[in-house]
Design a protein around this nucleic acid. Structure first.
Length: 295
DNA sequence: GCCCTATGTTAAA
DNA sequence: TTAACCTAGGGCT
């Protein structure tokens, strides 16, 4: 799944290729037929992301709201006037891979026959986008969009995000900070990799009650997640290691074992203190951390 | 082919 | 806390 950075890349992609375009919307799979009919034939105004939610505004005041969950993914394709044919969403290879323009070449000949699992297909004059496996795919009114966003915590990738809201939420709960970072009502866009990596980078034990962290620690977590999310948006992958820790390996080519410090590194020695990295299931998700240097 | 896993979330128990 | 849901790929037999 895609953590928040993928959704912001998606929003950017939608703005690049669909903004101002009149589109055909359909549901080859058949599970979004009614929703698609509300949008079919209308013009896309713009798209934006809040945490892991994608919102696509149409000129008829309706908004397409998609959440990819763990499995969801969008695939794009089109002609030369359709920027950046690519795939964004659930990884289909080791690590996250978002395919570049080189994968789709030659003359655009129309969208391919959709797979039976395509929940939603969007087609413009110059290209197409297919959505598979989303947790959420629905059409919202402006009021409903506000309602959904009101339940989401601040997203470090959004310029108008208020970190104080995250600090307040963390300061009043005894839940572990590792759990709070995954709670989209407290902070949105952070997922299992960013939470593990940011806690390791800030040397904070994920099991510490959130309310016991001091202001500088909460601020460090906000700023580091913001920093790491921005790298994710720029590179299209989650890269949480510092350049010095992957000598000679450009961020765009970092292998999975070079890209992260603790995520999926259980059983290996911590590169900071040598202790063996551990993994434990917490609230249904695997939490990776170093018992030696995260206090 | 079968089993497992995954960057997620919600509802039921 | 558990189950359910959404899908595809990899490793195994």
């Amino acid at each position: 799944m895609p953590e928040g950075h993928s959704i912001h890349r998606l929003a950017r992609q939608f703005n690049d290729v669909f903004a101002g375009e009149k589109v055909a919307v359909s549901s080859p799979q058949g599970r979004f037929v009614d929703g698609a009919a509300l949008l079919d034939g209308h013009t896309i105004i713009s798209a934006f992301a809040h945490g892991k939610h994608l919102f696509v505004n149409f000129e008829n005041d309706l908004t397409l709201n998609v959440h990819l969950g763990i499995y969801g993914a969008w695939t794009f394709g089109g002609d030369d006037q359709f920027n950046g044919a690519s795939s964004i969403g659930a990884p289909r290879t080791i690590g996250e891979k978002e395919r570049g323009t080189a994968e789709v070449s030659g003359e655009y000949q129309g969208a391919p026959e959709p797979k039976a699992t395509v929940r939603t297909r969007i087609v413009s004059e110059h290209g197409w986008a297919d959505l598979i496996g989303p947790t959420i795919c629905r059409v919202l009114t402006p009021d409903e969009v506000r309602g959904v966003r009101a339940k989401l915590g601040p997203d470090p990738l959004n310029d108008d995000a208020d970190p104080a809201s995250f600090y307040r939420a963390a300061s009043k709960t005894g839940r572990p900070i590792g759990v709070v970072l995954m709670d989209q009502k407290s902070i949105s866009g952070v997922g299992n990799i960013f939470r593990a990596e940011s806690l390791w980078r800030q040397k904070i034990n994920p099991f510490r009650p959130a309310k016991e962290l001091d202001a500088s620690e909460l601020e460090a977590l906000w700023e580091d997640n913001k920093h790491l999310l921005h790298i994710g948006v720029r590179v299209g992958r989650i890269i949480t290691t510092e350049p010095d820790d992957r000598p000679g390996i450009p961020e765009t080519e970092a292998w999975p074992e070079h890209a992260n410090y603790v995520y999926m590194h259980h059983g290996e020695p911590c590169r900071r203190c040598g202790s063996i990295i551990r993994v434990e299931e917490v609230a249904g998700r695997k939490l990776y951390w170093c018992p030696g240097c995260q206090h």
